[in-house]
Design a protein around this nucleic acid. Structure first.
Lengths: 208, 208
DNA sequence: GGGCACTCTAAGCGCTCGCTCACCCTCGGC
DNA sequence: GCCGAGGGTGAGCGAGCGCTTAGAGTGCCC
């Protein structure tokens, strides 16, 4: 992993492979601005300014402001899905896999909460085609979590009367971390991840 | 309860006491528009148009577009807090009170998901003073839920190692319903409320 | 060292935004 | 029948928006 992909905290930045350099700076600036003020309240002049460039420079690398949001959404979702799948597909009991999935997914949403906020709350600003692409990625999150819960039920390790509903609730719980998590708050992403993994195991009444 | 405060589903509309009639129509139109497209993407022409009025009419009843959002946020929060408190302060065991609080709070966020979305996701569009007022209301939500959990722990009915963290998670779970709930989806607000009440009792390992 | 591709800027176009203003209609009190 | 107050409208202002264009600087290949 290159240094460009890692922060001081060790959490991988999702933009490592974006090039050229100016395009990456614009993308990072757009994430910050969108997360702070929302897509519609952010101006192209603001994004370009944060990246240290003139407003016109943005249009050399991206066709529209919406293309920036689309790229952020896709890369962000892909990275989060990658984190979730790695944990879901690992070895171990369903309880271990579920705990690890929640722990790492929550850690991502807390550590990368600026990206996650954009990705989760600005979906409606995308056009129909782009939105459909992102929604498809989300369904894969759902499928990954549901699979673990089903495995646990089948093995007799979980007691879950409503698998679909519980899946929705687990994902909802993890995703909403991006909304309330505060870097200056009392908890680190690791701590929130550990707390939430425990809470989710309680929700499925894991017995081992 | 007057007919103006009730929909076909029986859920009370929060705008019953807003007058005159034109001001209420504008408020309802603004909630719809803000929920659909977000505060910044909604134009005053759109709001006035939905209320069947000219753009200028809006400024007879509200000083600015932001005042509309402020009023929606305050009324929405007050109604939700009212629902939560009524359940939290009722008689019964901590488990019964927690279940009823989650059930009614979730039902409100599902049934009034347009209002709830505006209230939860457009907070940053408010100025500092208005935002501070809304944040204070939110803290009362937190206090109400935490009190029930503490009561349950004190009575020996709950097993909760981290009361503050669990409180945050429970509220987060309920609030996020407003984001994903879909009127055309497979579940009614009542059903989601019942499912979530059960899940939360599992989270605190309620024994009676 | 001339030509070219790439990157970036200053200036500004056309448009829509939040909001205002001058004026009109309706209606209750006398 | 007249008046004043309050709710409404059509037109439009100044500002800021997303985005474009003409042209300048820079490095690389031959």
């Amino acid at each position: 992993m290159s240094t460009a992909e890692e922060t001081a905290g060790g959490e991988p930045q999702p933009w490592g492979e974006v090039s050229p350099d100016a395009a990456r700076r614009l993308l990072v600036a757009a994430v910050e601005a969108f997360a702070e003020r929302g897509y519609h309240a952010t101006t192209t002049r603001d994004i370009a300014g944060r990246a240290g460039m003139s407003p016109a420079a943005l249009y050399i690398h991206y066709k529209t402001k919406e293309e920036l949001l689309h790229r952020i959404s896709r890369i962000g979702h892909e990275k989060a899905l990658d984190v979730l799948r790695t944990a879901a597909d690992s070895e171990g009991t369903p309880a271990e896999r579920l705990a690890e999935a929640v722990r790492s997914f929550v850690r991502w949403h807390a550590g990368q909460h600026t990206v996650a906020r954009v990705v989760q709350y600005e979906l409606d600003a995308l056009g129909p085609d782009a939105r459909a692409e992102i929604v498809a990625l989300r369904r894969q999150n759902d499928a990954a979590v549901r699979q673990i819960i089903q495995d646990g039920v089948a093995a007799g390790d979980f007691d879950v009367p409503d698998v679909k509903g519980t899946t929705v609730a687990v994902l909802s719980l993890c995703i909403d971390v991006a909304r309330w998590f505060n870097v200056n708050g009392p908890r680190t992403p690791d701590e929130v991840g550990a707390l939430y993994a425990d809470l989710v195991l309680r929700m499925v009444r894991a017995t081992k």
